[in-house]
């Protein structure tokens, strides 16, 4: 019974893996094309030609590019992301804590943003073209239109400086109590929520409105269901595929696109880590972070695809 679904899901997963491999090639190639030489960058202007040659030999930079790619890929697959050139630290170990911090922030932002966006979308449909709809759309659009650094600083100004409810700098450390941690991420999470809210809300609204034209919505109305129940029980389940898609895109953004917000709030996550090491031209770190971001993006999109497949009763229950 579930065989067509299994087949489709397997296809998506295989496609995702293939895509990830392609991205890894692109990332590797991209960092190779960049001007500048890592050995030169590490040793600085005053390095002698001999020491440069030694270091290149030591780092394996003299090998052909494809060998270095497979070497790097093999390391990645076994959990070895290499060592950071600037600090000499193991990348996997330093990323672990930061990735967890980023996921923590993204998780709480998503917990607030996704249900809020969908509920606001449902309400907007219920009162479509009325003042409630226009107010919701207007506010959501405004919050998206402001750049995130602006929202960040506005939040800091009011909540941290003026009223001093939340800290303006989101320092977190290992073993920090949960409550304090939540207080620390309150402002960056709010900023992220405001950034992603409108997109999800508008898509929810549009997807449901599209379904509201259907004959089965009229059937539901003629059964005497209340307007909100018509939307919730009959329109929403059929609009779920496009909604999941946009939700997943925004979740990916919460993890991958937080660079600016993390920098503003000095939050020790992946974004800040990436920005730090881009400025230091630390190629292995940039590669590793790039690959992780790509993996997050691809897997969330696969989840969206699979969810859309599973949400379709025609595929779930074939004839």
């Amino acid at each position: 019974m579930s065989s067509p679904i299994l087949k489709l899901v397997a296809q998506r997963v295989a496609l995702g893996i293939l895509l990830l491999l392609a991205v890894s090639v692109l990332i590797f190639a991209g960092t190779q094309i960049l001007p500048g030489d890592v050995a030169q960058a590490i040793l600085g202007q005053s390095a002698t030609p001999e020491s440069l040659a030694n270091l290149r030999e030591q780092l394996g930079l003299n090998q052909p590019a494809y060998l270095r790619y497979f070497h790097w890929l093999g390391g990645v697959l076994t959990g070895d992301l290499g060592t950071a050139m600037s600090s000499g630290q193991d990348i996997a170990t330093s990323i672990k804590g930061r990735l967890w911090n980023t996921l923590f922030l993204a998780f709480w932002a998503a917990i607030v943003a996704v249900p809020l966006a969908i509920i606001l979308g449902l309400i907007a449909v219920r009162y479509r073209n009325g003042w409630v709809d226009k107010l919701i759309s207007g506010l959501a659009l405004a919050s998206t239109s402001f750049p995130e650094f602006f929202i960040g600083y506005v939040l800091v100004y009011f909540f941290a400086v003026k009223w001093q409810i939340f800290p303006g700098i989101s320092t977190v450390y290992d073993g920090m109590p949960f409550g304090e941690r939540m207080q620390a991420i309150a402002l960056p999470a709010t900023a992220l929520t405001l950034v992603v809210l409108a997109h999800m809300m508008r898509m929810t609204r549009a997807a449901i409105l599209n379904v509201m034209q259907s004959a089965y919505v009229e059937t539901a109305e003629l059964k005497g269901l209340s307007a909100f129940n018509v939307i919730r029980k009959h329109a929403f389940p059929n609009a779920i595929a496009p909604i999941i898609n946009v939700v997943m895109l925004n979740l990916a953004y919460l993890i991958v696109g937080v660079v600016v917000v993390e920098v503003i709030f000095v939050y020790p996550g992946m974004g800040q880590y990436l920005v730090d090491h881009v400025t230091k031209r630390d190629v292995p770190v940039v590669q590793a972070v790039g690959l992780i971001f790509a993996a997050v993006y691809i897997s969330l999109n696969i989840i969206a695809d699979i969810a859309a497949i599973v949400a379709n009763p025609r595929l779930r229950h074939p004839k």
């Binding site: 004959a215 089965y216 009229e218 059937t219 539901a220 389940p237 025609r314």
Partner: peptide, 13 residues
């Protein structure tokens, strides 16, 4: 109410 096209008037979900 019984609609013209039951195929469209039943919720596919």
């Amino acid at each position: 109410y019984v609609a013209q096209s039951a195929a469209a008037a039943f919720n596919p979900a």
